[in-house]
Design a protein around this nucleic acid. Sequence first.
DNA 1: CGCGGCTTTGATGTTCATCAAGTAAAGTGG
DNA 2: CCACTTTACTTGATGAACATCAAAGCCGCG
Lengths: 231, 231
Amino acid sequence: MDKSLGICICENCDFRNVVFRYLDDENILRLCENKEERTYRKGEIINREGERITEFKYLKKGLVKIYRECKNGDEQVVTITRPFEFVSNISIFSDETYNYSVSALEDSTVCIVRLDFMKELFSGNVDLALGLLSRVAEVNEKIIRQSLDIRTRNLTGRVAYVLLYFSREIYNSRVFELPVSRKEIADFISMSTANVIRTLSELKRDDIVRTEGKMIEIIDFPKLEMISMRG
Amino acid sequence: MDKSLGICICENCDFRNVVFRYLDDENILRLCENKEERTYRKGEIINREGERITEFKYLKKGLVKIYRECKNGDEQVVTITRPFEFVSNISIFSDETYNYSVSALEDSTVCIVRLDFMKELFSGNVDLALGLLSRVAEVNEKIIRQSLDIRTRNLTGRVAYVLLYFSREIYNSRVFELPVSRKEIADFISMSTANVIRTLSELKRDDIVRTEGKMIEIIDFPKLEMISMRG
DNA sequence: CGCGGCTTTGATGTTCATCAAGTAAAGTGG
DNA sequence: CCACTTTACTTGATGAACATCAAAGCCGCG
């Protein structure tokens, strides 16, 4: 990256190596002038289901949940995801409106580019468009697998599965702070809040995990994996 | 379509208007020389989970189920789909091996192109690549929504949902022949075979559907929709 | 015929959601 | 900073939803 091009911070952005790796320096500059960086506080809504898509958004920093409203009023969590995974939204290339809502689970930074400017970039940069679309396809793949995995498991298996997901995919650590309430876990793995808590208590009783409020520590990894596999 | 170009049947293929709408006549001819049309009998396996992807395949005619093997040996059906929906596989742009198996539910015709030739076409035809990828994204979208829908419903709601799916999306008719066994329905909507049958019997008893072997007739559409919604 | 696979139904027990009641924690306003 | 309110969490008890098992009927195919 030629620093002489200017002070534009986009050229140093981590995303340069992911979604925008195919842009040349001139277009990076143009992108930089057209982008807007917005921060969302924990709990704030980034996209709302049903709204028209006018911007391309990707998560630079933070953690978000993608979810949809059920008929009866409460939420169904589609997935919970880190930067590089959440590329604008699942629907950007196929639909005109958001299929899902997105909200921030941690304070999050989102980079925003008007959709028509993105399309302008696409027309001159095929690889960019292809790269982004493949990314979307990959993300979708993951979501499908996750949903199928959840459907095959019983309650204990689901809780074990989601704990392993947080530990391995989100925090990369045996011990972490849950970014969501018990109810949100329930909405994620399609079970009742009471039973999520009950199952956690059992895992605690059996010395497989340790919990203290939102803090989770996985003590017996192999056993938890076994429960996730067989359940 | 200039008929003078030759006898190549590709130029008249229905797919010309879908995935290959962006190819010019010269490339359609090249495609035609490189493609292979294969037919699969009902029950035959088209792709097998875990195998290396070396060919681009799309369904021209017939009906297929996409599924994966569970740890305990039996199957989980990801979705059931018609031509234009089944584009090669969900995994073709992101993975090197198939994530799911695909088998024919009816006698089916599949058009096959070597993957490296496809990539060659891509490099010269951006719109083709984009079109295909968007298609994959769309298909994935549908699968995600379906899986989420199934997860929110109770048994009766699931059976109603799947009957409506067959009626509306697959057969476009109030009366149709089920292309799958009761067990396969069960594997699709994550419930036991016995309960699928039991639920069908109840819908029959309540004069909402009529069944005779594989034949299904939806008698009370509104009521079935209500069950699918509330369940 | 007779065998094997798919279907159907009933009976049984397990798994799970729901309800209720209680406790801890986290905001909120004075 | 404390009293108050609200929201999240926890646990037990209950009944409903569901899977599993078993036995019987059906149907196609050798």
